[in-house]
């Protein structure tokens, strides 16, 4: 464990906590893409298949449980909670995310480290996480009004993956057998790049102390 990875995990945790708090406190999920949340739940399911069979550390197991629990509770709020579900603007959340799932699954079947069920599912989760934010970014562009909690949510998510890239550089430089993780790095780089334009507008709006507006 290195500081980049730990900080990245904390940013990731913060992003889901911010989102859960917003939904729980305001009893509203306006501006949140349900499709992105569904993709993230799928990412965690496919990546943490070994949660009960493999043990790496208490931290690792606890964080996996926290991420799975938060993903499912966000889905429960947005789909089943009698008040919150009314605030989900379905007609703004139009990204056809099933194509993302299909594309990532095909790619995982073609490009992976080992052709085993667990490894292909893990690879699928890495690809899917890279694009999972797309429905949310599209929805932000469309709804245009970004409340600062949603902005923070996306900002923390982008920071988490950016820190993970520093972690990969660090591990590449310090660990011997870490050189075959190029697949993760490419996917992680694409994922972070997707946030680039959002970061630009987020920092600009923060600096000018104005409402965050994404260009149409």
């Amino acid at each position: 464990m290195n500081i980049f990875r730990f900080a990245g995990d904390m940013m990731h945790l913060l992003s889901v906590v911010v989102l859960l708090l917003k939904i729980h406190k305001m009893k509203s999920c306006a501006g949140i893409s349900l499709k992105t949340q569904e993709l993230y739940a799928l990412v965690f399911i496919c990546r943490y298949l070994d949660i009960f069979t493999g043990f790496i550390s208490l931290y690792n197991t606890i964080m996996k449980i926290v991420f799975l629990a938060s993903a499912f509770s966000i889905l429960w709020y947005m789909r089943s909670h009698k008040v919150v579900r009314q605030t989900y603007d379905k007609d703004q959340d139009t990204f056809r995310h099933y194509f993302l799932i299909l594309a990532c699954m095909v790619l995982a079947l073609l490009v992976h480290h080992k052709f085993t069920f667990r490894e292909v599912m893990w690879t699928f989760s890495i690809y899917l996480e890279a694009v999972a934010i797309l429905p949310q970014l599209v929805m932000l562009q469309r709804t245009r009004n970004i409340d600062n909690l949603t902005g923070n949510y996306v900002f923390f998510l982008g920071t988490y993956r950016g820190l993970y890239m520093l972690n990969w550089v660090y591990r590449y430089l310090t660990e011997v057998h870490y050189h075959h993780r190029w697949l993760t790095w490419i996917s992680g780089f694409i994922q972070t790049a997707l946030y680039a334009d959002f970061f630009y507008y987020y920092v600009k709006s923060w600096r000018n102390n104005e409402k965050l507006q994404l260009p149409a």
Partner: peptide, 10 residues
Amino acid sequence: KSSGHGHDEL
């Protein structure tokens, strides 16, 4: 530390 093939990252 996980083996080369284990995934020890979240």
